[in-house]
């Protein structure tokens, strides 16, 4: 039996699953060349090495192109409402702590309509893994600007260009106090799948900002082939992921330098929300009829 707060931090493999076991026969409705394909493949690989069987995984998303990802896995999926994936996932995790709970969605889902939920998920620190597929546009709704679009960025839905400064998701997560913050790109499939695995194994809220390019509306400079030449691995740069201040310093370069890898991983993570909850719950529990006592 896995203890209550370790749903995502699995020890030995509990199934002999290969990456194939997490994919289904559905053909993704993404445009050919969309970065989300790579994210999906990296996720399959990560889940295979983590080794929880698909029925023990709950995969929640919001609405958007990226949010269709649970549909293409064999896990339990919940393709829910625009912006509400995080609170739904927290409800699942609180009700059923043994599950491995994954959350995914786009940049608008995470930082526009769902922006109010992000800091609260961070400060509660539930054992969830949150994959934001940041393409700097609202893909599904026809390419309007999103909260991560650069100032001046033009798009089909915003032909005059954005007047607003972008959000910096990595800095934002660090500032709120997240204990695991990373950035990945589908161009580096191997690196991304390892990051996802590490995030899943982290005991607490783990956030990965994935620069997942939109080929239809996105910035040409962010496409997969260009990303490959632009990326700078934090590890190679000599960054110590236990150093939060250094992580915040590096995160400032977002938009100019494309760092990948772990920005920050708390070496002494505090107890997760799930373990705090478990310690409040009474065992043996009262019977429902005791409510009439």
């Amino acid at each position: 039996m896995i203890s209550a707060d370790s749903g995502n931090r699995v020890g030995p493999k509990s199934c002999r699953c290969s990456a194939k076991d997490f994919g289904n026969e559905l053909k993704p409705k993404w445009c050919p060349g969309c970065g989300d394909f790579g994210v999906m493949n990296a996720l399959y690989r990560a889940l295979a090495s983590v080794g929880r069987p698909p029925h023990e995984i709950a995969f929640v998303s919001g609405i958007g192109c990226s949010s269709r990802i649970p549909e293409y896995t064999t896990a339990y999926g919940f393709n829910s409402l625009h912006g509400r994936a995080l609170p739904i996932a927290q409800g699942i995790k609180m009700a059923h702590p043994e599950l491995l709970v994954l959350v995914a969605g786009g940049d608008a889902d995470a930082f526009s309509i769902g922006g109010g939920h992000f800091p609260h998920a961070v400060r509660r620190n539930p054992d969830l893994t949150y994959l934001v597929m940041d393409n700097q546009v609202m893909g599904q709704s026809d390419g309007q600007v999103s909260p991560t679009s650069a100032k001046g960025a033009k798009s089909r839905g915003s032909t005059q260009g954005s007047l607003e400064a972008p959000i910096n998701p990595v800095l934002y997560a660090l500032a709120y106090g997240a204990h695991f913050v990373a950035q990945g790109i589908p161009a580096d499939l191997d690196g991304l799948s390892k990051l996802i695995e590490e995030a899943i194994r982290f005991p607490g809220f783990a956030f990965i900002n994935i620069q997942s390019p939109c080929i239809t509306f996105g910035d040409p400079d962010m496409q997969v082939l260009v990303q490959k030449t632009r990326m700078k691995k934090l590890k190679t740069e000599g960054h110590d992921p236990a150093d939060r201040a250094a992580a915040m310093e590096l995160a400032q370069a977002s938009g100019d330098v494309l760092y990948t890898g772990v920005f920050y991983k708390n070496p002494n993570p505090p107890p997760s929300y799930g373990s705090l909850i478990a310690s409040r719950q009474r065992t043996p529990a009262l019977e429902p009829s005791d409510a009439l006592a």
Binding site: I88, Q90, T283, A291
Partner: peptide, 23 residues
């Protein structure tokens, strides 16, 4: 908690209802 359950004071009512549907 005494009944083995849990309670979440959410950040707003949308999150509250969303957490409920998740549970």
């Amino acid at each position: 908690w005494k009944y083995g359950g849990s309670c979440l004071q959410a950040e707003d009512e949308i999150a509250a209802a969303a957490a409920v549907i998740g549970a």
